[in-house]
């Protein structure tokens, strides 16, 4: 077991950031911590990286206690904080050299670990980090976090504020690091990234809603789900929420995902919407995605 979290709670004054959190991450696993902003992801990550002390509960990372054995643990963690945390006025190479040196190693010695990632930004090695694009900054930050050969890599929202192409590339890099046996814990607010993880924990308001593989989470979704489109999506959403059989209705792009409380015929819904004056209607049964599951879990929690 690489990461072991046991009944962790943490408050900032009256605000409960984490409330009795427990889960485990196996060695070599790519684990996603998924939840909206303010869910408690960063707090949990800072506890695991020895930067914060929990109010209650215990944690073990690489079989070390992040509170009591933080000095022993620190050299073995690769940590990429949420904000871009490199020196903007240092060049790419200077940044990498600095982080290699303070972790007691050199770029040459561990080049093989970062070659895959670093080779992409090496042409810009004499450029100051502040002048890199968002995607390149993330690559540099990941290189800096990896250069000392950590056994666990902990990334806090690495893809926030990065363009879609760079996000995809970033996840491919994580997949390759995982193949080398590195345990990776990554947090993200993007639901679509969940399917790229081996297992995910859905977190909301300091509570864990579910921990499972993305496939199992999707499978566990047991309501009939319809994708509904109409010419006016906004009015459609409003009307669907007043439909008697509706459990939940959430907009996804230009369609609305409608979860029903029970089985019914398509005709019934079509009639209802046509009477409301909707045009260009399209209704089809769809498979739930991870976001539908998250919405469902959130709704259950509130109810």
């Amino acid at each position: 077991m690489s990461i072991y979290i046991n009944h962790i709670s943490k408050s900032y004054g009256p605000v409960k950031a984490l409330d009795d959190i427990s889960f485990e991450v196996s060695k070599g696993e790519l684990f996603g911590l998924i939840g909206p902003d303010g869910a408690g992801k960063t707090t949990l990550i800072r506890i695991l990286t020895t930067l914060l002390v929990p109010d209650a509960g215990t944690a073990r990372v690489l079989d070390l206690d992040p509170v009591k054995e933080f000095r022993k643990l620190r050299p073995h963690i690769g940590y990429m904080p949420g904000r871009f945390s490199l020196y903007q006025d240092l060049t790419v190479l200077e940044n990498l050299n600095f982080f290699a040196t303070i972790f007691g190693t050199t770029i040459e010695k561990n080049y093989h670990l970062i070659a895959d990632i670093y080779s992409q930004i090496e042409p810009f090695k004499n450029r100051r980090a502040g002048q890199l694009s968002g995607g390149m900054k993330q690559k540099l930050a990941l290189s800096c976090a990896m250069v000392h050969e950590p056994e666990v890599l902990i990334l806090d929202e690495p893809t926030t504020g990065v363009d879609a192409v760079s996000r995809k590339e970033f996840w491919e890099m994580l997949a390759r690091l995982k193949e080398r046996g590195i345990t990776i814990l990554v947090s993200t607010p993007y639901m679509d990234e969940a399917s790229l993880c081996d297992r995910v924990a859905l977190i909301q308001n300091g509570h864990i809603l579910q921990v499972d593989s993305p496939a199992s989470i999707v499978e566990s979704y047991d309501r009939p789900l319809l994708g509904v489109r109409a010419q006016n999506t906004l009015r459609l959403l409003e009307d669907l929420r007043h439909y008697p059989l509706t459990h939940t209705a959430f907009p996804f792009g230009d369609s609305v995902h409608l979860a029903l409380t029970g089985e019914q015929t398509d005709g019934e819904l079509l009639d209802y919407l046509q009477k409301k004056g909707h045009t260009e209607l399209a209704i089809e049964p769809i498979a739930a995605n991870i976001e539908d599951c998250f919405m469902e879990l959130m709704t259950e929690k509130i109810a």
Binding site: R83, S85, L86
Partner: peptide, 13 residues
């Protein structure tokens, strides 16, 4: 302020 302290603290420095 820039968040680099987080990394410095996590390092063995």
């Amino acid at each position: 302020e820039l968040g680099t302290m987080e990394i410095l603290l996590v390092s063995p420095l």
